[in-house]
Amino acid sequence: MTTSLINTEIKPFNASAFKAGKFIEVSEADLKGKWAVFFFYPADFTFVCPTELGDIADHYEEFQKRGVEIYSVSTDTHFTHKAWHDSSDTIGKIQYTMIGDPTGAITRNFQVMREDQGLADRGTFLVDPDGIIQAMEITAEGIGRDAEDLLRKVKAAQYVAAHPGEVCPAKWKEGEETLAPSLDLVGKI
């Protein structure tokens, strides 16, 4: 049975990854004190996946300006990530970390493993600097995600973290009015 991971701490992990032309090791310790997005996808060399990863790549600088690191994750190996990076113009522009999870341990930790296929669902997880999951989204195979909407959610999560007692309403964009929940607000919205 799947339970919500919102407000839970990410589980420890160690993984090999591909980033900036090099193989690196990544663990949960690398995330402490930083915002992070884990962007799970089914497989390299597929169809919707490169459009999503390319969209994130196009917005990576904006995420970096907000202090957010991106970690794409599939059950492919870090070697496969490098081969895909080297052979695809879309994937070749990626500068963020591409984690290989061939054992599926990380994918299972985030509860997005399709056990019958050994592939990840399309899952997005926003993790705060304390390692706590603040937002998550899981979509079906054919539904691609939008980096601009993810960036909007990052901004909202960062705003709420920096402004205790305030919340961001639907469609909130940076600079817009927020809400301060109180007894006086009940039934007035």
Rank of each mutant, 00 (worst) to 15 (best):
H78E: 15
S88W: 07
W35Q: 04
F79M: 12
I106K: 02
D121F: 12
V73A: 05
M98H: 05
E52Y: 01
G33W: 08
H59V: 09
Y60A: 15
E9I: 11
D116H: 13
I24D: 04
S87K: 15
T103E: 11
S88F: 07
K22L: 07
I132C: 05
D128Y: 07
I91A: 05
I70F: 05
Y96I: 07
V73R: 03
A105V: 12
F18V: 04
G131R: 01
V37K: 04
D121Y: 12
F23E: 12
G67C: 11
A15M: 08
Y60R: 15
P42Q: 10
Y71G: 02
W35R: 05
H59N: 15
G33V: 07
Q134R: 15
N14E: 15
Y41V: 06
E61I: 09
D130E: 15
V112G: 04
Y41K: 08
L53N: 06
S72N: 10
A20I: 09
P102M: 06
H81G: 07
D86Y: 09
D30Q: 10
W35N: 02
V68H: 00
G33S: 08
A20N: 15
P102T: 07
V127D: 00
V68C: 03
F47N: 10
F23S: 12
F110G: 01
A15S: 12
I24Y: 02
V127P: 00
E62K: 14
G54T: 10
T124R: 11
E61D: 15
D121N: 13
F18W: 15
I106S: 03
G54C: 10
E9H: 14
V112H: 02
G131V: 00
F18P: 00
Q134F: 06
H78K: 14
